[in-house]
Write a protein that binds this DNA or RNA. Structure first.
Lengths: 214, 214
DNA sequence: AGCCTCATACGCTATTTGTCCTATATTTTA
DNA sequence: TAAAATATAGGACAAATAGCGTATGAGGCT
């Protein structure tokens, strides 16, 4: 029998969660708290809780901060974020705070149940869109630790042009910024493409960012 | 009916996979290849495959390299790694190569089926131990996610288009990759510009990267 | 049943970009 | 000092992009 605690300030959502959980006889909802602060109080009194379903957007003490505290004070308790937000920022912060899983609110009861079983088993259940974003975080972090920049021998002027190019302005504006003609800008870009072996702005800028040319 | 291709050099494991998949009547295993090279040949001849189940440890061309190629040549094909290795290194490389999911070989048929449905739906299914390691990867290299991403409400399709845009390919190629007309691509991009309040590719991509929309 | 959003598709026009070309003055370097 | 590299400038043409319009079917929500 697994003991679960819910942190959720929205009554309707909390009820919906409890209804879903009550479908499974080996789960027991030990309580429902309206914010992070009362949740922490609850945990202080009561040591039996094994899983917390945590909303992110709560008054007084939000879900991220609360998760950090729960994990600091009771590392054995599993925390599953259950929220309507699937924005990268929230996901990232929740993961850093130590959340074990991250579900969106509209999951089916079975998925919710499986997820609870999964965290108890050392896993990390995530809603599919959340998982996709998590993978993207990993993909993009790598870009910053990229390999020793290759040698492309851009001139100072070319690098300058490339930097301007990366901002999304057009040739005329670059020309104005650098007090040269747009024809010259084009010529420089032609040379840049040649050196980088690319054929358009986007490729040039992405390669430049990857290799720390700009 | 979803068409699936298996890349696996171990006969026993391949058979086991096929047995599991055959339990579901809306899945169709289109073939089984013994290494990455023959898999690529298969895909070249046959355009109907939607999902590839990819082993990591194959002779001639391994699963990571093969995934990179599959994703480069056929971005619409979903790749799920299916392997005995749950080491961080493999997971990390597979994610960078563009894998959509990462399962361990001993998953139950239902989990395998759900995972296939999940990738088709834009998700990122992972075995629980893999997901946990993925989260750890994020935890131990943070800094870049400091500022809150703004809310732009891009649809899934728009995000997909934006990702393609960032690679520097043109509208026609994006259209081919996604099996839609270039007119539709243009319309999506128009909508993206509207939502992001920008007026060209470069601005859109830079804003997207900055706000982790892609 | 009616109202949304999303994804799809097409037409038209103007602007921007990419790839050729040539040409000259200045700066760097061998 | 001579040669090479760099920075400047512009012509011509094709391709790609951006901004506008309209329209339709599918699916979700009220």
């Amino acid at each position: 029998m697994l003991r679960i605690l819910i942190a959720e300030d929205n009554t309707r959502i909390a009820r919906s969660l409890m209804e879903k959980l009550e479908l499974f006889e080996d789960l027991k909802v030990k309580g429902w708290e309206l914010n992070g602060s009362t949740l922490l109080n609850h945990l202080e009194r009561n040591s039996g809780v094994e899983v917390v379903l945590m909303d992110i957007n709560m008054p007084v003490l939000n879900g991220i901060e609360t998760t950090r505290e729960v994990k600091r004070l009771y590392p054995h308790i599993k925390v599953i974020m259950s929220t309507v937000f699937d924005e990268e920022h929230y996901i990232f912060e929740a993961i850093l705070a130590g959340a074990n899983g991250y579900l969106l609110k509209d999951e089916r009861p079975e998925k919710l149940y499986d997820s609870i079983r999964e965290v108890m088993d050392g896993g990390a259940p995530m809603s599919s869109s959340v998982a996709r974003k998590a993978l993207n975080m990993i993909r993009y972090q790598r870009e910053h630790y990229s390999q020793p920049a290759e040698e492309y021998n851009l001139t100072r002027r070319e690098t300058e042009i490339l930097e301007q190019l990366a901002t999304g302005i057009n040739y005329n504006q670059i020309a104005e910024n650098l007090y040269i003609s747009s024809g010259t800008v084009r010529k420089h870009i032609e040379n840049i493409y040649q050196k980088l072996q690319v054929h358009n702005k986007m490729e040039a800028v992405q390669l430049a960012l990857k290799n720390r040319l700009i």
